[in-house]
Simulated assay, not measured.
Amino acid sequence: MKNLNLKKHFFKIVLLIFGVYLTYDYFGNRKKIENLNYGIKANEFRKSLNVPIIDYYMTAQNRHDEFFGNRWESWREKPKENEILHAWKNVIPSENEKFILNEEMDAFRIKESNGRIRQLNIYSKIVNDSILTRTGRTFFNTDPREVLELNEIGVDSVVKSWKLNYLIKK
């Protein structure tokens, strides 16, 4: 009798065990990611170098991907009216154990008055955890793309106009 009952609920039991495993794995990985030196822990350091931080609404996607670094993404793809959305961030940590940061790529999005979404990509290169060089690109996510390449001054100009003041280099 009990054997029949076990067979009857076997799928539910397997599903429950799998669900518990996925939940444990998710929170365990999230804890590991939060403790990475170049993860959320490095946000204050990023601010001091005028590098975009990992925002509170972003979740980590690749926890230890050596080639692509680690990626944090917003759960939304499109910004609301009068909002600047930090859509994603890729971090390539330094291979030198003395330093934390090396390269970071960020995407910010803003909805313009005509309803089109403009994206700003910022490419940051950090040398010896102290020197920052940046380049960037702005474009629309829909055709026509209208791509504009930016140097340091151009990046500062766009982040200033978007009121991302902590990113402006002095």
Score class of each variant (00 low, 15 high):
4 L>G: 12
10 F>H: 06
14 V>E: 08
15 L>E: 09
21 Y>G: 01
22 L>F: 10
22 L>K: 07
25 D>H: 05
26 Y>M: 07
29 N>C: 02
30 R>I: 05
30 R>N: 14
30 R>T: 07
31 K>V: 03
32 K>W: 00
33 I>C: 01
33 I>N: 00
35 N>K: 14
35 N>Y: 00
38 Y>D: 04
41 K>C: 04
45 F>P: 02
47 K>R: 10
48 S>H: 09
52 P>I: 02
52 P>F: 06
53 I>P: 02
59 T>P: 04
60 A>E: 13
61 Q>P: 09
67 F>H: 09
70 N>I: 08
70 N>M: 08
72 W>Q: 11
75 W>H: 11
80 K>M: 06
82 N>M: 12
85 L>E: 02
87 A>R: 13
88 W>A: 01
88 W>N: 08
89 K>D: 10
90 N>V: 07
90 N>I: 11
91 V>M: 09
91 V>G: 08
92 I>S: 10
92 I>Y: 15
92 I>Q: 14
94 S>Y: 02
94 S>T: 02
98 K>V: 08
98 K>S: 11
98 K>A: 11
102 N>R: 12
102 N>D: 11
103 E>Q: 13
106 D>K: 03
110 I>E: 05
111 K>L: 09
111 K>V: 08
113 S>C: 06
116 R>W: 07
119 Q>L: 15
119 Q>N: 13
122 I>F: 00
126 I>M: 03
128 N>K: 09
128 N>Q: 11
129 D>M: 02
129 D>H: 05
131 I>N: 09
135 T>C: 12
138 T>S: 00
138 T>A: 01
138 T>K: 01
139 F>V: 08
140 F>V: 03
143 D>M: 11
144 P>H: 02
147 V>G: 03
149 E>Y: 15
152 E>Q: 13
154 G>I: 00
154 G>S: 00
156 D>Y: 02
157 S>M: 12
158 V>P: 00
162 W>L: 04
170 K>P: 15
170 K>M: 13
